[in-house]
Nucleic acid binder design. Sequence first.
DNA 1: CTGTCTATCTTTAGCAG
DNA 2: CCTGCTAAAGATAGACA
Lengths: 215, 215
Amino acid sequence: MARNRAKMTFLENNTSRKATFRKRKEGLMKKASELSILCGVAVAVIIEGEYSSVPEVFPREDVGSVIDKWDKLSQADKDKKMVNHEKYLKQRIEKAKEKLNKVNKENREMEMKELMFDCLRNKTAPCFLGPNELRDLGVFIDQYIKILSRRIETLTNNQGSSSTSVVPAAAGTTSVAMPTAAMGSSSTGFNNMIEENMNEIPNVKDFDLNRCSEE
Amino acid sequence: MARNRAKMTFLENNTSRKATFRKRKEGLMKKASELSILCGVAVAVIIEGEYSSVPEVFPREDVGSVIDKWDKLSQADKDKKMVNHEKYLKQRIEKAKEKLNKVNKENREMEMKELMFDCLRNKTAPCFLGPNELRDLGVFIDQYIKILSRRIETLTNNQGSSSTSVVPAAAGTTSVAMPTAAMGSSSTGFNNMIEENMNEIPNVKDFDLNRCSEE
DNA sequence: CTGTCTATCTTTAGCAG
DNA sequence: CCTGCTAAAGATAGACA
Protein backbone atom coordinates (compact mmCIF):
# COMPACT_ATOMS: atom_id res chain seq x y z
CA MET A 1 0.00 0.00 0.00
CA ALA A 2 2.50 2.51 -1.16
CA ARG A 3 3.55 3.94 -4.50
CA ASN A 4 0.45 2.54 -6.10
CA ARG A 5 -2.51 1.44 -4.10
CA ALA A 6 -2.89 -2.33 -4.18
CA LYS A 7 -6.28 -3.92 -4.02
CA MET A 8 -6.95 -6.08 -1.04
CA THR A 9 -6.80 -9.60 -2.43
CA PHE A 10 -4.60 -12.63 -2.14
CA LEU A 11 -1.21 -11.92 -3.65
CA GLU A 12 -0.75 -14.38 -6.48
CA ASN A 13 2.89 -13.54 -7.03
CA ASN A 14 4.91 -15.86 -4.83
CA THR A 15 7.88 -13.60 -4.29
CA SER A 16 6.01 -10.48 -3.41
CA ARG A 17 3.62 -12.41 -1.21
CA LYS A 18 6.45 -13.72 0.87
CA ALA A 19 8.08 -10.30 1.04
CA THR A 20 4.82 -8.73 2.07
CA PHE A 21 4.32 -11.45 4.64
CA ARG A 22 7.63 -10.76 6.30
CA LYS A 23 7.17 -7.02 6.32
CA ARG A 24 3.59 -7.01 7.51
CA LYS A 25 4.27 -9.64 10.14
CA GLU A 26 6.89 -7.35 11.62
CA GLY A 27 4.48 -4.47 11.45
CA LEU A 28 1.72 -6.42 13.14
CA MET A 29 4.04 -7.55 15.91
CA LYS A 30 5.19 -4.00 16.46
CA LYS A 31 1.64 -2.74 16.67
CA ALA A 32 0.79 -5.51 19.12
CA SER A 33 3.81 -4.62 21.22
CA GLU A 34 2.84 -0.97 21.27
CA LEU A 35 -0.76 -1.66 22.21
CA SER A 36 0.46 -3.88 25.00
CA ILE A 37 2.82 -1.22 26.35
CA LEU A 38 0.62 1.82 25.94
CA CYS A 39 -2.48 0.31 27.48
CA GLY A 40 -0.93 -2.23 29.80
CA VAL A 41 -2.89 -5.14 28.39
CA ALA A 42 -1.83 -8.62 27.40
CA VAL A 43 -1.83 -9.29 23.70
CA ALA A 44 -1.28 -12.51 21.85
CA VAL A 45 -0.82 -12.85 18.11
CA ILE A 46 -0.62 -16.19 16.40
CA ILE A 47 0.22 -16.32 12.72
CA GLU A 48 -0.05 -19.63 11.03
CA GLY A 49 2.48 -19.18 8.29
CA GLU A 50 2.70 -21.15 5.10
CA TYR A 51 6.29 -20.09 5.28
CA SER A 52 7.15 -21.39 8.69
CA SER A 53 5.97 -24.79 9.81
CA VAL A 54 5.53 -23.43 13.29
CA PRO A 55 3.12 -20.57 13.88
CA GLU A 56 4.63 -17.19 14.50
CA VAL A 57 3.76 -15.94 17.92
CA PHE A 58 3.84 -12.64 19.64
CA PRO A 59 4.74 -11.37 23.08
CA ARG A 60 3.56 -11.03 26.56
CA GLU A 61 5.00 -13.14 29.31
CA ASP A 62 3.93 -16.27 27.56
CA VAL A 63 1.24 -16.47 24.97
CA GLY A 64 -0.09 -19.40 26.94
CA SER A 65 -1.56 -17.32 29.74
CA VAL A 66 -3.57 -15.26 27.33
CA ILE A 67 -4.70 -18.34 25.49
CA ASP A 68 -5.60 -20.11 28.71
CA LYS A 69 -7.95 -17.35 29.67
CA TRP A 70 -9.56 -17.66 26.30
CA ASP A 71 -9.87 -21.41 26.64
CA LYS A 72 -11.51 -21.12 30.03
CA LEU A 73 -14.32 -18.93 28.76
CA SER A 74 -17.80 -20.32 28.50
CA GLN A 75 -18.93 -21.31 25.05
CA ALA A 76 -21.53 -18.57 25.13
CA ASP A 77 -18.91 -15.89 25.71
CA LYS A 78 -16.78 -17.37 23.00
CA ASP A 79 -19.61 -17.24 20.51
CA LYS A 80 -20.25 -13.67 21.39
CA LYS A 81 -16.68 -12.64 20.86
CA MET A 82 -15.49 -15.02 18.23
CA VAL A 83 -16.33 -13.05 15.14
CA ASN A 84 -15.04 -14.95 12.18
CA HIS A 85 -13.29 -13.19 9.39
CA GLU A 86 -16.27 -13.03 7.08
CA LYS A 87 -18.48 -11.44 9.71
CA TYR A 88 -15.72 -9.02 10.55
CA LEU A 89 -15.43 -7.94 6.94
CA LYS A 90 -19.18 -7.67 6.54
CA GLN A 91 -19.30 -5.38 9.53
CA ARG A 92 -16.66 -3.18 8.02
CA ILE A 93 -18.43 -3.10 4.68
CA GLU A 94 -21.64 -2.08 6.42
CA LYS A 95 -19.88 0.76 8.18
CA ALA A 96 -18.24 1.88 4.97
CA LYS A 97 -21.56 1.87 3.15
CA GLU A 98 -23.18 3.91 5.87
CA LYS A 99 -20.40 6.42 5.63
CA LEU A 100 -20.69 6.51 1.86
CA ASN A 101 -24.42 7.18 2.06
CA LYS A 102 -23.89 9.88 4.59
CA VAL A 103 -21.26 11.61 2.51
CA ASN A 104 -23.34 11.29 -0.64
CA LYS A 105 -26.19 12.94 1.17
CA GLU A 106 -23.94 15.74 2.35
CA ASN A 107 -22.69 16.20 -1.19
CA ARG A 108 -26.18 16.46 -2.56
CA GLU A 109 -27.07 19.02 0.09
CA MET A 110 -24.05 21.12 -0.68
CA GLU A 111 -24.64 21.01 -4.40
CA MET A 112 -28.18 22.15 -3.74
CA LYS A 113 -26.95 24.98 -1.60
CA GLU A 114 -24.51 26.12 -4.22
CA LEU A 115 -27.18 25.90 -6.86
CA MET A 116 -29.52 27.93 -4.69
CA PHE A 117 -27.03 30.73 -4.25
CA ASP A 118 -26.27 30.66 -7.97
CA CYS A 119 -29.95 31.23 -8.57
CA LEU A 120 -29.91 34.18 -6.22
CA ARG A 121 -26.89 35.72 -7.85
CA ASN A 122 -28.36 35.48 -11.34
CA LYS A 123 -31.92 36.18 -10.25
CA THR A 124 -32.96 33.13 -12.22
CA ALA A 125 -32.55 29.38 -12.30
CA PRO A 126 -29.93 27.81 -14.59
CA CYS A 127 -31.48 26.78 -17.89
CA PHE A 128 -30.03 23.27 -17.73
CA LEU A 129 -32.31 22.24 -14.89
CA GLY A 130 -35.03 19.74 -15.69
CA PRO A 131 -38.41 19.67 -13.97
CA ASN A 132 -37.25 17.13 -11.36
CA GLU A 133 -34.18 19.13 -10.48
CA LEU A 134 -36.28 22.24 -10.17
CA ARG A 135 -38.71 20.50 -7.85
CA ASP A 136 -35.89 19.16 -5.69
CA LEU A 137 -34.35 22.59 -5.57
CA GLY A 138 -37.69 24.01 -4.54
CA VAL A 139 -38.04 21.52 -1.72
CA PHE A 140 -34.52 22.24 -0.58
CA ILE A 141 -35.07 25.98 -0.57
CA ASP A 142 -38.28 25.51 1.37
CA GLN A 143 -36.41 23.63 4.04
CA TYR A 144 -33.60 26.12 4.04
CA ILE A 145 -35.96 29.02 4.55
CA LYS A 146 -37.66 27.18 7.38
CA ILE A 147 -34.35 26.67 9.11
CA LEU A 148 -33.44 30.32 8.68
CA SER A 149 -36.83 31.41 9.95
CA ARG A 150 -36.53 29.24 13.01
CA ARG A 151 -33.14 30.68 13.73
CA ILE A 152 -34.37 34.21 13.31
CA GLU A 153 -37.20 33.51 15.69
CA THR A 154 -34.89 32.09 18.30
CA LEU A 155 -32.49 34.97 18.06
CA THR A 156 -35.12 37.71 18.12
CA ASN A 157 -37.03 36.16 20.99
CA ASN A 158 -34.19 35.17 23.29
CA GLN A 159 -31.63 37.91 22.74
CA GLY A 160 -33.15 40.73 20.79
CA SER A 161 -30.28 43.07 21.70
CA SER A 162 -27.51 40.64 20.81
CA SER A 163 -24.44 42.03 19.07
CA THR A 164 -24.85 39.43 16.34
CA SER A 165 -26.24 41.24 13.33
CA VAL A 166 -29.32 39.35 12.30
CA VAL A 167 -32.02 40.29 9.86
CA PRO A 168 -35.08 41.35 11.88
CA ALA A 169 -37.97 39.24 10.61
CA ALA A 170 -38.29 39.05 6.86
CA ALA A 171 -39.21 36.05 4.70
CA GLY A 172 -41.08 34.35 7.49
CA THR A 173 -42.21 30.75 7.45
CA THR A 174 -44.06 31.05 4.18
CA SER A 175 -43.41 28.04 2.04
CA VAL A 176 -42.31 28.85 -1.50
CA ALA A 177 -44.00 26.63 -4.04
CA MET A 178 -42.04 27.73 -7.12
CA PRO A 179 -38.88 29.00 -5.51
CA THR A 180 -37.00 30.40 -8.48
CA ALA A 181 -39.84 32.73 -9.25
CA ALA A 182 -40.31 33.69 -5.62
CA MET A 183 -36.66 34.45 -5.16
CA GLY A 184 -36.54 36.82 -8.09
CA SER A 185 -38.67 39.20 -6.05
CA SER A 186 -37.37 38.55 -2.58
CA SER A 187 -37.28 41.33 -0.01
CA THR A 188 -34.26 43.41 0.87
CA GLY A 189 -34.07 41.79 4.27
CA PHE A 190 -33.83 38.39 2.72
CA ASN A 191 -31.09 39.55 0.39
CA ASN A 192 -29.06 40.80 3.30
CA MET A 193 -29.43 37.42 4.90
CA ILE A 194 -28.18 35.84 1.72
CA GLU A 195 -25.13 38.07 1.69
CA GLU A 196 -24.21 36.91 5.12
CA ASN A 197 -24.49 33.29 4.13
CA MET A 198 -22.59 33.68 0.90
CA ASN A 199 -19.31 33.32 2.67
CA GLU A 200 -20.03 29.92 4.01
CA ILE A 201 -20.78 28.01 0.86
CA PRO A 202 -18.73 24.91 1.38
CA ASN A 203 -16.95 22.94 -1.28
CA VAL A 204 -18.31 19.63 -2.34
CA LYS A 205 -16.69 17.03 -0.18
CA ASP A 206 -14.81 14.18 -1.63
CA PHE A 207 -15.16 10.59 -0.61
CA ASP A 208 -12.65 7.94 -1.46
CA LEU A 209 -14.54 5.01 -2.84
CA ASN A 210 -11.42 2.87 -2.87
CA ARG A 211 -11.59 2.75 0.87
CA CYS A 212 -14.73 0.70 0.49
CA SER A 213 -13.44 -1.69 -2.12
CA GLU A 214 -10.44 -2.30 0.05
CA GLU A 215 -12.37 -3.59 2.99
CA MET B 1 1.90 9.03 17.41
CA ALA B 2 0.77 12.10 15.61
CA ARG B 3 1.00 15.82 16.12
CA ASN B 4 3.61 15.38 18.79
CA ARG B 5 5.59 12.22 19.15
CA ALA B 6 4.54 10.33 22.26
CA LYS B 7 7.05 8.26 24.13
CA MET B 8 6.33 4.59 24.28
CA THR B 9 5.23 4.09 27.88
CA PHE B 10 2.10 3.17 29.76
CA LEU B 11 -0.48 5.91 29.39
CA GLU B 12 -1.21 7.17 32.87
CA ASN B 13 -4.17 9.28 31.83
CA ASN B 14 -7.24 7.11 32.07
CA THR B 15 -9.30 8.79 29.41
CA SER B 16 -6.67 8.93 26.74
CA ARG B 17 -5.56 5.39 27.52
CA LYS B 18 -9.01 4.06 26.89
CA ALA B 19 -9.37 6.12 23.74
CA THR B 20 -6.03 4.91 22.49
CA PHE B 21 -6.98 1.37 23.34
CA ARG B 22 -10.11 1.50 21.24
CA LYS B 23 -8.39 3.12 18.29
CA ARG B 24 -5.36 0.91 18.29
CA LYS B 25 -7.36 -2.24 18.81
CA GLU B 26 -9.26 -1.44 15.64
CA GLY B 27 -6.03 -0.73 13.84
CA LEU B 28 -4.48 -3.99 14.98
CA MET B 29 -7.51 -5.97 13.92
CA LYS B 30 -7.48 -4.32 10.53
CA LYS B 31 -3.82 -5.10 10.04
CA ALA B 32 -4.42 -8.69 11.08
CA SER B 33 -7.28 -8.92 8.63
CA GLU B 34 -5.15 -7.55 5.82
CA LEU B 35 -2.25 -9.87 6.53
CA SER B 36 -4.66 -12.76 6.52
CA ILE B 37 -6.16 -11.78 3.18
CA LEU B 38 -3.02 -10.73 1.36
CA CYS B 39 -0.97 -13.76 2.31
CA GLY B 40 -3.72 -16.31 2.77
CA VAL B 41 -2.67 -17.26 6.27
CA ALA B 42 -4.67 -17.77 9.44
CA VAL B 43 -4.18 -15.10 12.04
CA ALA B 44 -5.45 -14.95 15.58
CA VAL B 45 -5.28 -11.95 17.84
CA ILE B 46 -6.30 -12.08 21.46
CA ILE B 47 -6.42 -8.89 23.47
CA GLU B 48 -7.00 -9.18 27.13
CA GLY B 49 -8.68 -5.89 27.85
CA GLU B 50 -8.94 -4.19 31.17
CA TYR B 51 -11.90 -2.57 29.54
CA SER B 52 -13.80 -5.64 28.55
CA SER B 53 -14.14 -8.61 30.86
CA VAL B 54 -13.85 -10.93 27.91
CA PRO B 55 -10.76 -10.87 25.73
CA GLU B 56 -11.13 -9.25 22.36
CA VAL B 57 -10.54 -11.69 19.60
CA PHE B 58 -9.80 -11.49 15.96
CA PRO B 59 -10.90 -13.38 12.86
CA ARG B 60 -10.30 -16.40 10.87
CA GLU B 61 -12.92 -19.10 10.74
CA ASP B 62 -12.63 -19.64 14.43
CA VAL B 63 -9.76 -18.56 16.55
CA GLY B 64 -9.86 -22.02 18.05
CA SER B 65 -8.30 -23.77 15.09
CA VAL B 66 -5.29 -21.52 15.16
CA ILE B 67 -4.98 -21.91 18.88
CA ASP B 68 -5.35 -25.66 18.66
CA LYS B 69 -2.41 -25.90 16.33
CA TRP B 70 -0.40 -23.89 18.76
CA ASP B 71 -1.47 -26.09 21.63
CA LYS B 72 -0.47 -29.23 19.80
CA LEU B 73 3.09 -28.10 19.30
CA SER B 74 5.86 -29.76 21.23
CA GLN B 75 7.18 -27.83 24.20
CA ALA B 76 10.50 -27.47 22.44
CA ASP B 77 8.92 -25.76 19.45
CA LYS B 78 6.93 -23.57 21.76
CA ASP B 79 10.03 -22.47 23.61
CA LYS B 80 11.70 -21.68 20.35
CA LYS B 81 8.85 -19.53 19.12
CA MET B 82 7.40 -18.17 22.30
CA VAL B 83 9.39 -15.01 22.56
CA ASN B 84 8.12 -13.08 25.52
CA HIS B 85 7.68 -9.39 25.34
CA GLU B 86 10.89 -8.51 27.09
CA LYS B 87 12.96 -10.63 24.75
CA TYR B 88 11.13 -9.19 21.81
CA LEU B 89 11.93 -5.68 22.91
CA LYS B 90 15.54 -6.55 23.61
CA GLN B 91 15.86 -7.89 20.11
CA ARG B 92 14.50 -4.69 18.70
CA ILE B 93 16.81 -2.61 20.85
CA GLU B 94 19.76 -4.64 19.65
CA LYS B 95 18.81 -4.08 16.05
CA ALA B 96 18.32 -0.38 16.66
CA LYS B 97 21.71 -0.11 18.31
CA GLU B 98 23.38 -1.89 15.44
CA LYS B 99 21.75 0.51 13.05
CA LEU B 100 22.82 3.45 15.16
CA ASN B 101 26.41 2.27 15.18
CA LYS B 102 26.37 1.74 11.48
CA VAL B 103 24.98 5.19 10.79
CA ASN B 104 27.40 6.79 13.22
CA LYS B 105 30.24 5.12 11.39
CA GLU B 106 28.94 6.33 8.07
CA ASN B 107 28.63 9.82 9.46
CA ARG B 108 32.21 9.83 10.67
CA GLU B 109 33.39 8.59 7.29
CA MET B 110 31.51 11.27 5.48
CA GLU B 111 32.73 13.99 7.76
CA MET B 112 36.26 12.76 7.15
CA LYS B 113 35.71 12.84 3.43
CA GLU B 114 34.35 16.34 3.55
CA LEU B 115 37.27 17.42 5.70
CA MET B 116 39.70 15.84 3.29
CA PHE B 117 38.28 17.67 0.33
CA ASP B 118 38.27 20.89 2.34
CA CYS B 119 41.98 20.37 2.88
CA LEU B 120 42.51 19.91 -0.82
CA ARG B 121 40.56 23.02 -1.72
CA ASN B 122 42.46 25.19 0.73
CA LYS B 123 45.76 23.41 0.21
CA THR B 124 46.08 23.18 3.99
CA ALA B 125 44.41 21.56 6.99
CA PRO B 126 41.91 23.54 9.05
CA CYS B 127 43.62 25.14 12.03
CA PHE B 128 41.03 23.85 14.49
CA LEU B 129 42.19 20.26 14.16
CA GLY B 130 43.94 18.75 17.15
CA PRO B 131 46.70 16.14 16.89
CA ASN B 132 44.27 13.24 17.21
CA GLU B 133 41.96 14.55 14.54
CA LEU B 134 44.92 15.09 12.25
CA ARG B 135 46.10 11.56 12.80
CA ASP B 136 42.63 10.14 12.12
CA LEU B 137 42.41 12.24 8.99
CA GLY B 138 45.78 10.91 7.90
CA VAL B 139 44.66 7.34 8.38
CA PHE B 140 41.48 8.01 6.48
CA ILE B 141 43.29 9.62 3.58
CA ASP B 142 45.69 6.70 3.46
CA GLN B 143 42.81 4.32 3.11
CA TYR B 144 41.10 6.51 0.57
CA ILE B 145 44.19 6.70 -1.60
CA LYS B 146 44.56 2.95 -1.41
CA ILE B 147 41.01 2.46 -2.60
CA LEU B 148 41.55 4.89 -5.45
CA SER B 149 44.81 3.21 -6.42
CA ARG B 150 43.19 -0.17 -6.46
CA ARG B 151 40.45 1.11 -8.68
CA ILE B 152 42.92 2.75 -11.04
CA GLU B 153 44.81 -0.49 -11.27
CA THR B 154 41.72 -2.47 -12.06
CA LEU B 155 40.59 -0.05 -14.72
CA THR B 156 43.97 0.35 -16.42
CA ASN B 157 44.65 -3.39 -16.43
CA ASN B 158 41.27 -4.69 -17.52
CA GLN B 159 40.07 -2.00 -19.90
CA GLY B 160 42.89 0.32 -20.74
CA SER B 161 40.98 1.73 -23.71
CA SER B 162 37.75 2.25 -21.82
CA SER B 163 35.78 5.39 -22.56
CA THR B 164 35.70 6.15 -18.86
CA SER B 165 38.15 8.95 -18.26
CA VAL B 166 40.47 7.75 -15.56
CA VAL B 167 43.73 9.19 -14.37
CA PRO B 168 46.53 6.98 -15.73
CA ALA B 169 48.59 6.03 -12.71
CA ALA B 170 49.45 8.85 -10.37
CA ALA B 171 49.66 8.85 -6.58
CA GLY B 172 50.31 5.15 -6.35
CA THR B 173 50.05 3.11 -3.19
CA THR B 174 52.46 5.27 -1.25
CA SER B 175 51.18 5.86 2.24
CA VAL B 176 51.07 9.49 3.30
CA ALA B 177 52.30 9.98 6.83
CA MET B 178 51.45 13.67 7.20
CA PRO B 179 48.70 13.94 4.63
CA THR B 180 47.99 17.64 4.66
CA ALA B 181 51.58 18.43 3.78
CA ALA B 182 51.75 15.77 1.12
CA MET B 183 48.56 16.89 -0.47
CA GLY B 184 49.69 20.46 -0.81
CA SER B 185 52.14 19.31 -3.47
CA SER B 186 50.16 16.60 -5.11
CA SER B 187 50.58 15.91 -8.81
CA THR B 188 48.34 17.22 -11.53
CA GLY B 189 46.99 13.75 -12.16
CA PHE B 190 45.88 13.42 -8.58
CA ASN B 191 44.19 16.79 -8.73
CA ASN B 192 42.19 15.72 -11.75
CA MET B 193 41.10 12.69 -9.85
CA ILE B 194 40.01 14.92 -7.02
CA GLU B 195 37.96 17.05 -9.36
CA GLU B 196 36.09 14.02 -10.48
CA ASN B 197 35.34 13.03 -6.93
CA MET B 198 34.33 16.49 -5.82
CA ASN B 199 30.84 16.02 -7.13
CA GLU B 200 30.09 13.05 -5.00
CA ILE B 201 30.70 14.45 -1.55
CA PRO B 202 27.62 13.28 0.27
CA ASN B 203 25.82 15.12 3.00
CA VAL B 204 26.13 13.94 6.54
CA LYS B 205 23.31 11.56 7.14
CA ASP B 206 20.91 11.98 9.95
CA PHE B 207 19.77 9.30 12.31
CA ASP B 208 16.75 9.62 14.51
CA LEU B 209 17.76 8.67 17.99
CA ASN B 210 14.16 8.77 19.15
CA ARG B 211 13.52 5.64 17.20
CA CYS B 212 15.79 3.84 19.61
CA SER B 213 14.35 5.27 22.78
CA GLU B 214 10.94 4.28 21.58
CA GLU B 215 11.69 0.60 21.32
C1' DC C 1 17.24 -14.22 -0.61
C1' DT C 2 17.94 -10.24 2.90
C1' DG C 3 18.52 -5.47 3.51
C1' DT C 4 17.94 -0.43 2.13
C1' DC C 5 15.50 3.54 0.12
C1' DT C 6 11.62 6.44 -0.72
C1' DA C 7 7.22 8.03 -2.70
C1' DT C 8 2.77 7.22 -1.11
C1' DC C 9 -0.70 5.66 1.55
C1' DT C 10 -2.47 4.69 6.36
C1' DT C 11 -2.80 5.32 11.23
C1' DT C 12 -3.43 8.03 15.01
C1' DA C 13 -2.92 11.84 19.08
C1' DG C 14 -5.01 15.70 20.34
C1' DC C 15 -8.98 18.58 19.82
C1' DA C 16 -13.57 20.34 19.04
C1' DG C 17 -18.46 19.33 18.87
C1' DC D 1 -18.84 8.61 26.45
C1' DC D 2 -18.71 8.83 21.48
C1' DT D 3 -17.82 11.06 16.56
C1' DG D 4 -15.23 13.56 13.24
C1' DC D 5 -11.26 16.15 11.75
C1' DT D 6 -6.48 17.01 10.69
C1' DA D 7 -1.51 17.46 10.94
C1' DA D 8 2.15 14.63 11.70
C1' DA D 9 4.25 10.11 12.33
C1' DG D 10 4.30 5.44 10.77
C1' DA D 11 3.95 1.60 7.50
C1' DT D 12 5.01 -0.33 3.22
C1' DA D 13 5.10 -1.73 -2.22
C1' DG D 14 8.20 -1.62 -5.52
C1' DA D 15 12.80 -0.96 -7.03
C1' DC D 16 17.37 -1.65 -6.28
C1' DA D 17 21.93 -3.36 -4.10
